[in-house]
Amino acid sequence: MLSALLFCVGSFGFLARRNAIAMLMSIELMLNAVNLAIVAFGAFVPALQNRASIIALTVMAVAAAEATVGLAIVIAIYRNRRTPLVDEYASMRE
């Protein structure tokens, strides 16, 4: 019941693909959904209990690192391109 709910959040977050920063935000939402799944499993399976917290904390730290680097990349691209919209980044392919 809980899992279905939160994976829906993840898939809704998956839907946003416009502004590069909005994409990063939806990535954060998806990571949060997975984190909630982990914690929920940990709460309902006694053998996993404390380990789930550790896994969730690790995921959080990794998400922080990912957000930092991602936003730095967005800012660097913005400085060159003057737009945060991803569909105008196509010329990067060349």
Binding site: A64, A65, E66, T68, V69, A72, I75, A76
Partner: peptide, 12 residues
């Protein structure tokens, strides 16, 4: 996390 900090500074 340390690598992310350094990378963020370098990229931005």
């Amino acid at each position: 996390l340390l690598a992310a900090v350094i990378g963020g500074v370098f990229l931005a």
